[in-house]
Simulated assay, not measured.
Amino acid sequence: MTSNSTFPKRLTKIDDLTRPDHYHLTVDDTCYYIGEYTAREGYAFSATNQLIYNLKKSVLVRGQVQWEYKEQAIKQAASALRDALNNDALNAVTFVPIPPSKSKSDPLYDDRLYRVLHTIRPNPTLDIRELILQKNSMEAVHLNEKRLSPDDLKECYEIDENLIEPLPNNIILFDDVITTGSHFKAAKNILCEIFPNANILGLFLARRVPETIDIEDIFSGFFNKDQD
């Protein structure tokens, strides 16, 4: 387990050093994150991993003991965002959750992102709009061997035209984890067509970081273990 025992509560910008980890992003994309999530390391690896694992628990566990962990993760994520964001600035932005893999009509649809945003400040409520909808349910990205490009994903999205007005000036696209950046780019591109004059940036609870490599693994092939 890493030394990071608590989930951070400050924003970090994805910069020239970290952008290559999210290869669909370009220098024109402005994205911020709070924690760093390491895939395939399990929930106990770090506080961020634990938060993300609990937040992503399936709606199928509703009513079970595991559901309480999801509820706690929603509150924890909202608390971290509340501490990291300027309260006055919250009044000047429109939050748009990046849609999950399931359509809203699917029984497995998970509204965790909307609930996190709503919990940041229930009263007065923030401007949260589920502007982008998934046309049809898809397999979750971590279960799909084929990584879809931003253009492919964009074709899977549609705009809820009932939520276009009033026209937003500043849009924050929100998701729990940024991996390649393809979902962010797809969402940003479709919003740019509808709101060409709006400022659009990304906000994520965590960014996926490359897997850690043990120093012994690096040099394991260099030396014969039987040598003195």
Rank of each mutant, 00 (worst) to 15 (best):
Y32Q: 03
V96G: 05
S58F: 12
N144Q: 15
T2N: 10
F223V: 09
L25Q: 06
E161P: 00
P100V: 08
V141Y: 03
S182P: 03
S149E: 11
D176A: 13
Y23P: 02
L173T: 02
L191V: 11
R62A: 15
Q76M: 09
F7S: 08
R208H: 07
P122Y: 10
Y33K: 03
P107V: 01
L173K: 05
V59T: 13
H24Y: 15
W67R: 12
V59Q: 14
F174T: 09
F7L: 08
V61S: 14
Q72F: 05
P210A: 06
Q64C: 07
E216V: 02
I213P: 00
L117K: 11
P122E: 15
M1I: 04
I194E: 14
R40G: 10
L117Y: 11
L167I: 09
K135E: 15
A206P: 00
L55P: 01
D152G: 00
F219H: 08
I159H: 07
L90E: 05
S79W: 05
R207N: 06
F184Q: 06
S58W: 05
E158C: 10
R62D: 15
V65R: 13
L205C: 03
I132E: 09
P107R: 04
V59L: 12
R208A: 14
E145F: 06
C31N: 13
N169K: 14
L133A: 00
N54S: 15
K75N: 11
E36T: 14
E193M: 04
V59F: 09
F195C: 07
D110K: 00
L163E: 08
A187G: 15
Y157T: 01
K13I: 13
P8W: 05
F95I: 12
A47H: 07
L81K: 01
F174P: 01
I132S: 05
H22D: 13
Q76D: 04
A89S: 12
R207M: 10
N170M: 01
G202M: 09
K56A: 13
T26M: 08
E165Q: 11
L203T: 03
V116F: 07
P166S: 10
V177I: 14
A206I: 01
E155H: 04
N49Y: 04
E211L: 08
I74D: 10
F223C: 02
L25R: 10
V27D: 13
L205W: 10
L60Q: 13
S58K: 05
K102T: 12
W67Y: 14
E145Q: 10
Y37K: 02
K57F: 11
N197H: 04
N49S: 10
G202P: 01
N91M: 03
L173H: 06
S58P: 05
A84C: 02
L25C: 02
L85S: 11
T12D: 05
F174S: 03
I178V: 12
T38E: 15
N170I: 07
N224T: 02
N199H: 09
R10C: 11
T179I: 03
F195A: 10
N49M: 07
E158Q: 11
C192P: 00
D217V: 04
I128Q: 13
M1L: 10
N144M: 08
K185G: 03
A198Y: 10
D28P: 00
L191Q: 06
D29Y: 01
R112I: 03
K56W: 07
